[in-house]
Every structure is written in structure tokens, then in C-alpha cells.
Design a protein around this nucleic acid. Structure first.
Lengths: 198, 198
DNA sequence: TTTTCAAATGAACAGATGTTCAGTTAGATG
DNA sequence: CATCTAACTGAACATCTGTTCATTTGAAAA
């Protein structure tokens, strides 16, 4: 039959993304266990059965959302990383983290809050990705120590403290429009920079 | 009938606390929506109907757990607060936060992760308590600015950053026995102290 | 126009959900 | 001892759950 263009009228190109978007929105708002497949289907504008054209089951849908998000985060951080001196890299990390996560607040929230609802092997895979992102920050902190630019008592705990600090940001920023993004970024850079300074 | 001592054999003095403990443990582990009243009853060693001697409904049980926890946190912080110079008070805050929350990891987790599952008026009440605790930290930071001991770009955001940093701690410490509590406390104090230093 | 088939429907399934309540139990009280 | 009652049981309720699948739809392909 040779090469054939994808059907133009195919709904799956539209419905598929709609399912993922609606799932992120509903799960972020109500939690995985509290969102039923029928609620999700209604949000998409479809019957529950149709969702199973896009995911084998509810658990896999959650896992795919979390994995896709974390893979994107890591991939895009690696692009943004200047790979120069530790000070510049740390600054880039803080800036990237805030700017990249802000327009993806639902995905951040889900990837952070729904770990409990993953089956063991899915949990292990997601933890591995989360750890891979944390390891990138830890490497920057250790480089800074080696360069004599940073000083801290424990690079691993400092890594988690910084991530906790930056991530907590997304649990409240949406309500609070008080400050422009640039300002928030400057405030966080001030805190992080001073915390690890020599 | 005059004054009468409480029945000695009364089970409600035993079952009541058991219900709250089991609820905290199960909800922390699996999430509010994922825990059924029958699971909770089984954990307590009772039939589902008996739970309704201890709570009018599932939602109120969640709300009571969160409220009791936050009220205790605030009450005990106020006792621990030295009310002296900002530097001492901040140090006491960090120390209190870590030491008080550590043996109450389940309650911390529930009070932090289950906000989404509160009905609007319960949510408002819990948010008020959370805010009251944050305000105590913010007051310390502003006192430090006034004394010339601290310098920061924005006291409100710094408050949330510090709380986020300290709270993130409880999402991973249970697994990681690598360092003794005193050491973790010292590491956090180092980070917080430097971050707000002049 | 007829054929084709991806996409969606809608009913059905076995079981779980929060909550209520008449009835049972067991231990303290008088 | 008999009485009382707080605590609990166990069945029932209406409704919701994730998932399956035979059937229908509608638009692109031939």
C-alpha cells in the first residue's frame, strides 16, 4: 500500500492530547484516586470507554504523565546548562527550574504529589528520574566546592533543601500575582546564592 | 446522679485514639481518597459502622486530624519561642520545626498533602492555621531586618522558601538514616542562617 | 458512490463506596 | 442478682468504581 499520510480527520491526534491535559488538570486539582475515568471522560467530551483507546488503564495514564514530565524537565535542563563555572551553572539551574516549571504547574504538582499512588515498579522508575534531576544539582554544588566558590556542610542534603525550597514555590505562586516572575527569580537566586556561599 | 467517674471498661478511650492513629498512618501512606472506611476499620480491628461513633463522617475525620495537628504545632512553637533577638528566635524556629515534626511525620504529610481533599470551608480553616504558623516565621524575619541582623529581598517569599526547605525534609528523611538528627539540624541552620544573613 | 476502519458509544460486569440502623454483646452499676 | 447502656455488629441502601466489548458512526480512500 506504500506510504500513506495519516488520516486528516483522525480524532486521535486531538483526543489524545486532550486526555492528557484534562488528566493533569483534574488530578492536580482533586488527586489521582479522587478522579474517576468517567469524570475524566466528561472533561474530554467523550464516554469512559473511549479513554481506553489512549491508555491501557488508569495507573499507566498516571505513570505516563509523570514520566513524560520528568523526562522533559531533564532533557530541557541539559540544554539550558551552560557547563561553565559552578556559580553560573547554579544560577542557570535556579532560573531554569522556576521558568520551566511555572507554566507547567499541574504537571509539577502531579509528579510531586502522586508518588504514593504509583505501583511499586512505576514508583521505582519515577524515583530514578527524580534522582537524576537532583543529581544534576548535586554535581553543580560539588563542582562549586571543588572550585572553592561554594561551601556547605553536606552537598546531598543541601541539594534536597534547595529543591524543596524551589518546588514549594509552585504550591502557592498561582494564587499570588503580587510580584513579577523576574523579581521572584531574583529573590530565589539571592537566597540560594547566599546559602551556599563561602 | 452526682459526679460519676468514667466507666473503666469503656472502649472508646482506646478505640478513639486508635482510629486517629490508624487514619493518619493509612492516609499518609495511600492518600485520603484511596483509603476506605472499611480499610480503616480493619486496621483498627472493628467493623466500618463502629467508626461513626468517633466521627460524623470521613471528611470531618480528615479535617479534625489536620486541625489538631496544626493547633498543636502552633501551641508548641509558641512555648519554644525564646522571644529574644531575631537570630536566636530564628535558630529556635529551625530547631523546633525539625525536632517537633520528625516524630510526627504522618501528620505532617497529611496536613501538607491532603489540602485538596478538604471541602471549601474546612480548607479555609486549615489555610488560616497554616498561615498563622507562617506568620510567626515572617515576624521573626522582619524583626531581624529591623534589628539589622538579617537582609533579604522579600520577607514573605523568604518565609515560604524557608518553610518549603524545611518541610521538604520530611518527604525523604524517613528513608535516609545516614545522618543523626543533630547533624541535619546543624546543616539546615547553616543554610537558613546564611540565606538571610546581612 | 461504495468501501473501509479508526474512533467512539452505551450497556454490562463484578465489586467497592460512605453511611445508616435495628439488633447484639459484654461489662459496670445499683 | 438483674438492669442498663456504651460499644459494636452485620446487613442493607443507593450509587459509584475501572474495565470490557459488541455495535454504531462518519469521514477518508478507492
Amino acid at each position: 500500500m506504500a506510504l500513506m499520510a495519516r488520516k486528516q480527520g483522525s480524532h486521535s491526534d486531538i483526543t489524545g492530547p486532550k486526555v492528557r491535559e484534562a488528566a493533569l488538570r483534574l488530578i492536580a486539582r482533586h488527586g489521582y484516586a479522587a478522579v474517576s475515568m468517567r469524570q475524566l471522560a466528561a472533561e474530554v467530551g467523550v464516554q469512559a470507554g473511549a479513554l481506553y483507546n489512549y491508555t491501557p488503564d488508569k495507573q499507566t495514564l498516571l505513570y505516563d504523565l509523570m514520566r513524560d514530565h520528568l523526562v522533559d524537565v531533564i532533557e530541557n535542563f541539559d540544554k539550558a546548562d551552560p557547563r561553565s563555572d559552578a556559580q553560573s551553572r547554579l544560577r542557570a539551574f535556579v532560573s531554569f527550574h522556576i521558568r520551566y516549571h511555572l507554566p507547567r504547574a499541574d504537571a509539577v504538582f502531579v509528579a510531586y504529589m502522586e508518588l504514593r499512588n504509583l505501583e511499586p515498579e512505576n514508583f521505582a522508575a519515577i524515583e530514578k528520574l527524580r534522582r537524576a534531576y537532583e543529581d544534576r544539582l548535586e554535581a553543580i554544588l560539588r563542582q562549586g566546592e571543588a572550585e572553592g566558590a561554594f561551601a556547605m556542610k553536606d552537598a546531598r542534603i543541601t541539594t534536597r533543601a534547595i529543591i524543596g525550597m524551589l518546588t514549594g514555590f509552585f504550591t502557592w505562586y498561582r494564587q499570588e500575582g503580587r510580584l513579577p516572575l523576574e523579581e521572584v527569580e531574583a529573590i530565589y537566586w539571592d537566597l540560594v546564592g547566599k546559602a551556599v556561599a563561602r
